[in-house]
Design a protein around this nucleic acid. Structure first.
Lengths: 156, 156
DNA sequence: CTAGGTGCAAAAGGTTTGCGGTTAA
DNA sequence: TTAACCGCAAACCTTTTGCACCTAG
């Protein structure tokens, strides 16, 4: 019941955005968007492909790439590029930033409320800023704790 | 005279950093570092390759990649990833950020003095930040001016 | 002398494209 | 009906790797 209303909301949003740009509502787009909404763990195109495939065995990588592109253009999904490896995708469209753990490689969303206030005035004259993207790197809570434990041992 | 003292300084710095990590000073590394210092326009590996090749025709892409990696590890060069296209390289090691022009595709350095103050306290508990990277997107002064000109026409 | 570096060619990702057949509107 | 979309396979671009030879220290 609850799940249905969630997917229905997603469908409506998707449909609306597609319609707005003269694009069609297809089962593949529905599925790919669904995958991104379900596990918000920043999957790569390949991971999206594998997950979508479980429900839709005939879907192809090309379609996944095309669809992800479409969703990005619709403003329903963001691309996230790490230093190494494939592009990842994120359906959290709230203004937020990403924290990359250098130990485990995980990606975490970080709320950005008021984090970077009034940046534009500091740009050299003439630059017109449209968007900004802040990437943080370091240790996630788990890896940070593990490291601390290790250090304690090596000191004693 | 002035140029010589500049390259000599660069050589010394390179030599010192390489020695510190037990790596050798080679003509290829000197050349690649020189290319990055000369035009600070954020070239891709291929552009570095082409420029280095003019002076050192036998150099290979593999060496350029290896060398760029080495320089990054020595802390003499930064990697810069745009949304699309190849990784770019930057020899400006002052703490700064990058502005990408959505119109012409250019990359510009933006000084970051005091731009992102006191960020760490706002991270969720447990996260240990080691570094941060701010990317800005929008219009560079030139493209911004061109756009303004175009708009004026289409309005009148 | 020898560990580390180089050049080459080939492979390995990751992503895009061309095309014939399919489908939403 | 038909423009948009899909699936497939092949191409593409960027980066990495294995290996024989070379060279700085």
């Amino acid at each position: 019941m609850k799940k249905d209303s969630v997917t229905q909301l997603a469908d409506e949003r998707l449909n609306e955005r597609l319609a707005r740009t003269g694009q069609r509502f297809t089962e593949q787009r529905r599925r790919v968007y669904g995958v991104l909404l379900q596990h918000r763990d920043h999957p790569s195109a390949e991971e999206v492909f594998l997950r979508a495939k479980q429900v839709m065995p005939e879907i192809s990588m090309a379609t996944v790439y095309n669809t992800l592109d479409t969703l990005v253009q619709c403003g329903l999904v963001r691309q996230v590029k790490q230093d190494r490896g494939a592009t990842r995708y994120c359906s959290n469209m709230k203004q937020h930033h990403h924290f990359y753990c250098e130990e485990c490689g995980g990606t975490f969303d970080v709320d950005s409320d008021g984090v970077v206030p009034g940046l534009e005035p500091q740009l050299p004259p003439g630059f017109k800023m449209r968007s900004l993207d802040l990437s943080l790197r370091g240790l996630c809570p788990e890896c940070s704790a593990r490291q601390r434990r290790k250090n304690r041992h090596s000191i004693s």
